[in-house]
Amino acid sequence: MSESLEALPNLDAASFARPDPSRLFSVERAAHPPRFLLLYGSLRARSFSRFAAEESARLLRALGGETRLFDPTGLPLVDEANEDHPKVQELRALATWAEGMVWSSPERHGAMTGVMKTQIDWIPLSLGAVRPTQGKTLAVMQVSGGSQSFNAVNQMRVLGRWMRMLTIPNQSSVAKAWQEFDEAGRMKPSPYYARIVDVMEELMKFTLLTRDVADYLVDRYSERHEAAERLSTRVAQDAI
């Protein structure tokens, strides 16, 4: 039996709405290839996190997507430069362009690298009226020099939630990464490679399912309520 609004006296009824299935299933679907931004967390010449990101980009293109790989070389630390820095502007433009992301980081001292964190920290929750990450899909991956670990992907999941992204359930953690790539940086056949294929397939499916309704999926009662209160305050002030 449905709860009546009269039983919820603290609820702003004007800002409250039941989900509308037609908004999810009858929406016009975009025809362009899904767009993905891939970030990696190492500046080394032989960077296994970059190799994993490049392999992921190849898979996403084979699945029908369009990809961009951001090179973090030259990106300043947050607060070391202002947002007009060319690398910051490049990263933010790519984040706005993308409909989904892949974050690939080495694990260092039990965490993602500073290079990875710096890239994420330069992407704001909002750029004026634009929210570069909200409602977009995310896949997280890590590479390790030793045994398999999940510290970096767990950290990136927390950040993905903080950035209001739709982080897919699957993830990849490549142990002893130095054994998993050939001299050309291509990933060798292995269960680790198969997992990355799985992750990219899932990322593509989730992106196709959600990109056209992302704004609706992350539309929040609390924000509608706050906007209504601000509007009411302005109307009252204008009437004085």
Score class of each variant (00 low, 15 high):
L75S: 10
L60Y: 10
S126F: 08
V88I: 13
E90I: 05
L125V: 00
L69N: 05
V235T: 03
G64T: 04
R23I: 07
E202R: 04
E99Q: 15
P21H: 01
T137E: 04
S232A: 14
M1A: 10
K87T: 00
A177L: 10
R230A: 13
L11F: 06
M187A: 14
A95I: 08
D238Q: 08
A53H: 06
R211K: 15
L59T: 11
E66F: 04
S2K: 13
A14G: 15
P191I: 09
L77K: 03
T118S: 15
R157S: 02
E183R: 15
F181K: 07
V174H: 08
F150I: 11
K205G: 05
R186P: 00
A177T: 12
T210G: 09
S15K: 04
S126V: 04
S149Q: 15
P132F: 14
W122V: 05
R161C: 02
L11W: 09
A81V: 06
R58I: 02
S56N: 07
G146R: 08
R44E: 06
K117S: 07
M165T: 13
R58Q: 12
G185M: 11
A194R: 15
L209H: 09
S42V: 03
L43I: 11
T67F: 00
K117E: 13
L138E: 09
T73L: 15
V197F: 04
R164Q: 14
S42I: 06
P21Y: 13
E54T: 09
R186L: 10
R46Y: 00
E83A: 15
L159M: 14
T233Y: 14
L209F: 13
A194Q: 15
G100I: 06
